[in-house]
């Protein structure tokens, strides 16, 4: 495969970045994930995933302006890149294909 490896948690984070559409930063992503999954999400884990995604080119980031919140500290806002979107698409396609090729689909 030509594209970099994408871990399961990284995929979740990447999807959440896409969901949050421009408003994605550490805390927002973590609380979104907490809401949607039943996992214990640690901020540090989310951040490492984000930085790794950025290194791989799936997301890009920009430092937001300083506000009065959080003691005037800036946030880093993440956006999904074209490569990231394409990778998510690809992965969904592969999954769908695989799902449909399971011989007898039973939902017992």
């Amino acid at each position: 495969m030509g594209r970099p490896y994408l871990g399961e948690f990284e995929e979740l984070v990447l999807l959440t970045v896409a969901v949050l559409e421009g408003g994605a930063y550490g805390v927002a992503i973590a609380s979104e994930l907490k809401k949607r999954t039943d996992r214990i999400i640690s901020l540090s884990g989310v951040h490492i995933a984000l930085y790794r995604l950025e290194e791989k080119g799936f997301v890009k980031s920009v430092l937001g302006g300083a506000t009065n919140e959080r003691g005037g500290r800036r946030k880093r806002l993440f956006n999904i890149t074209a490569l990231g979107k394409r990778t998510l698409d690809e992965m969904r396609d592969i999954r769908n294909e695989l799902w449909t090729s399971i011989p007898k689909l039973s939902f017992s």
Binding site: Y25, G26, V27, A30, S31, L43, H47, Y51, L63, E69, R70, G71, R73, R74, K75, R76
Partner: peptide, 14 residues
């Protein structure tokens, strides 16, 4: 990275 990370931490704390 200190600034942004600490910011996130504080926000979550609040």
């Amino acid at each position: 990275l200190a600034e942004e990370l600490q910011g996130d931490m504080h926000e979550q704390f609040e």
